[in-house]
Amino acid sequence: MTDAIVAENLTYWYGDLVAVDHIDFNVASGEIFGFLGPNGAGKSTTVKMLTAQMKPKDGTATILGMDVTTKVRQIQSQIGVCFELPNMYEQMSAIENLKLFARLFNTKDFDGYDLLKRVDLAGRENERVENYSKGMRQRLMVARALVSKPKILFLDEPTSGLDPSSADGIRDIIRKESQRGATVFLTTHDMMEADELCDRVAFMDEGKLVALDTPHNLKLKYGRRALKAQVAGRGGELEEREVVMDRPDTPKAVEELFSSENVVTVHSEEATLGAIFMQITGRGLSG
């Protein structure tokens, strides 16, 4: 698999503030890559450099093998970007918005109606965006990012503010785009979403990349697995028992639990990405 995105020593600063501090990573073609971090971590600045909106102050970044500083138009014709905040032409209809961007991208065989059907906006195509709800606008933003059938999709909080059903619909689209061969660069605060969708995730904190791996490996590396059990006491009351996994004495502890206790329920507990992020950075994603 070739790399769709490569960042080497990528750096950007605003005055004295180093927003992105010499980060290195690569994203393989067709991969769904989660980019996680609290507000102000440097995610947006990184995305702006990768989408050729800003030139890196140091280091390099290539998109599909093209340098972001010199091949701006070529790069931007191959990517689709969904911004976190809605930025559609409000006084135009949904289909007019999509047609405009199809013309900008010179998309062949463009079918805006089909695209709107995919994001569950069929029947509302000719309504002006100013009359859309927040969720409808968000779905339209995703549709606009797909207009050019991009090779790389940059999605910034694409399910933010959506009801569970709509959010599932967007996640389904992300999976299908990945199956089509598109690379997805997903910025999100939703750790469950990242865990569910992403092949790999990167944690950003204070401009630095503090972790990068598959969710599974991150859990293995940083998380604590445990077996949680409820046992019945002598008087019939329920008590909690926990056996920490991945230790040398774990098999013996499990055996003892089942031989000496009256086990009522048992379930395993895995670390969440949120907990791992907190473990690594010492703070949560909201901060």
Binding site: T51, A52, Q53, V72, R73, Q76, S77, I79, V81, F83, L85, N87, M88, Y89, E90, F101, L104, F105, N106, R144, S148
Partner: peptide, 14 residues
């Protein structure tokens, strides 16, 4: 104000 300029400038339009 509507940030549409960002959307346009991240397309092939410069």
């Amino acid at each position: 104000e509507g940030r549409t300029v960002r959307a346009v400038l991240v397309s092939p339009a410069n």
